[in-house]
Amino acid sequence: MAVDTRIAAQLRDVHHRFGEAGVLQDVALTVRSGEIVAIVGPSGCGKTTLLRIVAGLLRPSGGEVARPDSGVGFVFQEPALLAWRRVDSNARLLARGEDAIVNHLLTVSGLLEHRHKWPHELSGGMKMRLSLVRSLAARPDLLLLDEPFGALDQITRHRLHDEFGALHESEGFSALLVTHSIDEAVYLADRVLVMSSAPGRIVGEFAVPFPRPRSDDLRYSSEFAALVGNIARSLYRYAGDA
């Protein structure tokens, strides 16, 4: 399927089954160039499966998937670093020769001074930053993120949210973010999609009107709280027995 240059990824009528169980049904979504789209949904609703289908790691049972020819970046729940490679070697794993970009990314993520360390010497936040840097070093048009901040403490998580926002501003990539945190989705995304479970369907879509760059103050605004509340109500309506 031809991809509109203004569209980073598009899914039409995607459904997927694992054996008898329907996991995804009639999923359609579009990620526009430069846009960050978040998907929220209850655990086990098929968010990760959807992300793997977008990445091309999983062939859907049916439907059409369009993704950038240049490939996609993927940031997993865990940092998925190569423990036997030092920080800079991990950062360069997927890079295509451009040293300057990797050094730039290491610098802005505060990893440059740690570049000779082993992954086990890094904090959880540093590991996740490195995972992000590794994905971005390949200069993907579309970055897929599967609950990348879920395992971090709140302070670190919020700090990474801002760093991610800054990277997005400077690098201009598109992103599809799967998360179970509505806060996170609203803070990071331009649009939030709500997914129901068993089978997973897109049951709601919320535009996030807050301008960028966003700052921590936004989290404590009533508009932010109201939007989070709306999404939560939509989510709970479809959450089923979960």
């Binding site: 793997r52 091309g56 790691l57 729940q77 794993l93 390949a138």
Partner: peptide
């Protein structure tokens, strides 16, 4: 070897 690490290599072709 975890699935995520395999996925990293799969995505890199």
């Amino acid at each position: 070897v975890g699935r995520a690490l395999h996925d990293v290599f799969t995505l890199a072709g």
